[in-house]
Design a protein around this nucleic acid. Structure first.
Lengths: 347, 347
DNA sequence: CACGGCCCGGAGAGCGCTCTCCCACGCGTG
DNA sequence: CACGCGTGGGAGAGCGCTCTCCGGGCCGTG
């Protein structure tokens, strides 16, 4: 009567319809305690009749849980170009796989991810205050550059957070990662096995741990095969940077017959350059990428590549975060995933 | 004293430190009413000193606003393959551009998007109850298939929602869209202008309005140029479907010299097939795509394509939604964006 | 038959905010 | 000097939940 008919039903309304107390309805909904069979049914009927949906704000106010986590993509915004960073990262199929893995796991736990970008200082502040406000219970952080200050600040604020990939500088924080060295070894073994004698590699940005690991893993494996020297060119994980790197390597080492690119996007760029120079793939030059992302399939020939189980890793990251949310004192953990080689047509 | 030191500071704490009432602190934070200069400063100092961050749950409980919206990707989950849909859509660069545009606009308004996938009935229920619970103030809906029941249900539940693209069956709901016919006309004019006489087109799924519009726009424009008949093959907006379609068209019309593909992914597939058959692009066959997404640039030759201002459209969609959130009674509106032709090397 | 324990429902406090209402004060006006 | 009015701060209700505490009924045991 005092409540306008447009207002959504509350627990109180359901209780009145069911003829029980608010507490009982709450217990039925949350399964907190035993409730008599019959009363349960009456309550459920009342819920259905009223079309009741529990108010999340009210619930989190008392439980101190929001049921959401922040999915943060952090990186350096090119100063002056406002939205470039977000555009770049979201169109990277790699991020899509992360999102998909995160969502796949969280949905089984009734938790929802809030998308955030932390490319500028205000944006980082926004992430921090979002968490401090209790709008999200924790953060999943996908960082794209080495000097990201966010992990340290999250730790300092004692906010639950998990990283995708080991931080560049040591921070006591949980993360999931790939055994990059093992992945690079897979690529090296494969190229040698294919009889390649003049192998080069295009690395990722060398301030990123993953790039370093892939490089050292590759070099070590090649050395073990009797190739102590592997020419390198540093790229930036983009297709264009792969092209530049390939051009340079080709100029300096015209007799190369094998290329390991530290991701598929760069491999794709390298492929274009090699073909432009008349090299046949895989006959003249064998090419191996890394990630097994969609460019690997849309290339011709399709790319042999080191598969990173990104979806599984993202799911693992999510699980780790929820553990931390549930048990605040938990020590940082890391989970390392194993790569595998997907042999296609480029090698 | 009764409050453990780990608990975050509340308005009450700030008020005590500042020596004013809770109401005054609230007024300073929200700028609701005039507050004496000096008191404002005292309050701000107290906020800084305590490290106070307003609790969102408490605030939304009374304001009935969550400050978040749902960014929903809806489509048909292939039954049996649980996570395939999410994986597919998130690795589509198109979605990345949408996300980027949405985020770019929302961040200026202090609103955060929650990522949701509605590919199954339980998932759709989840979206609906998420909104009914007040966890999000409205929904941004990117629908990938024609028979999506979600728009109608959102309207029925009187929940604020805006679609990306006109719904397949008429529903009184706001949306942003592209003038697809104009875009297709751009492509047709261009191909004719390049002197092509035997032009074919690869369409998108024909139950989707966008595909229909691109097809009719293309046909109309070609007819106006004196080509009443344009052979077509229906694709599914994927690279692989573009390959299949191109193979068929090539078999049926070996003399074709121009192709309009209804998106870049299919154009990319078509390109591969054309090259496999020894056709030179653009000399033998001119190829035009649609979207101007990243595949358009990673192809060789790079694709001439109809540019869709996806980021702007996504921003417009977000603005429309916030309008609806602020003014519940608002009538559905639509905003149509203009495409442009980006001429590159494939035509 | 008395009593302790268990099971299950109700009452009510309180989570951290916003916002309405009230009141004190200072000023201008008749 | 009485009064009205505007300005700005305080008190307190209440948003919709959860959860602790209490109490009544029913059992088993000595």
């Amino acid at each position: 009567m005092s409540r306008p008919p447009t207002a959504p039903p509350t627990l109180e309304d359901v209780a009145r319809v069911a003829g029980v107390s608010r507490a009982t309805v709450s217990r039925v909904i949350n399964g907190t305690r035993n409730v008599d069979r019959k009363i349960q049914e009456v309550v459920r009927a009342a819920i259905a009749k009223t079309g009741y949906a529990p108010n999340r704000a009210a619930r989190s106010l008392v439980t101190k849980r929001s049921g959401t986590v922040a999915l943060v993509v952090s990186g350096a915004g090119d100063p002056g170009e406002e939205d470039t960073f977000a555009a770049r990262v979201f169109s990277d199929p790699f991020f899509g796989r992360v999102a998909s893995g995160v969502l796949g796991f969280l949905r089984t736990r009734g938790v929802h991810p809030v998308l955030m970008v932390a490319d500028t200082e205000p944006a980082r502040e926004d992430v921090l205050s979002f968490l401090r406000q209790g709008s999200a219970d924790g953060a999943l952080l996908v960082s794209t550059h080495a000097e990201d200050p966010l992990p340290a600040r999250l730790v300092q604020a004692e906010l639950p957070a998990v990283l995708f990939a080991r931080p560049a500088r040591p921070v006591p924080i949980s993360y999931v990662d790939l055994d990059h060295q093992a992945g690079a070894k897979l690529a090296a073994d494969h190229l040698v096995h294919r009889g390649r004698k003049h192998v080069v590699t295009i690395t990722g940005p060398l301030d990123v741990p993953a790039s370093q690991d892939r490089l050292t893993g590759f070099r070590d494996a090649m050395a073990r095969h009797g190739f102590p020297y592997v020419p390198i060119a540093e790229g930036g994980f983009t297709s264009a940077s792969g092209e530049v790197a390939m051009e340079r390597l080709l100029a300096e080492h015209p007799d190369l017959d094998g290329v390991f690119a530290a991701n598929d996007l760069m491999a794709q760029g390298a492929l274009l350059v090699l073909q432009k120079h008349g090299r046949r793939i895989p006959d003249d030059v064998a090419l191996v990428g890394f990630d097994d992302s969609s460019p690997a399939l849309s290339c011709r020939p399709r790319l042999t590549t080191v598969r990173q189980p990104v979806e599984d890793m993202a799911a693992g990251m999510s699980r780790l975060l929820l553990d931390h949310v549930e048990e605040p004192g938990l020590r940082p953990k890391s989970v390392i995933f194993e790569p595998s080689l997907v042999v296609r047509d480029s090698s």
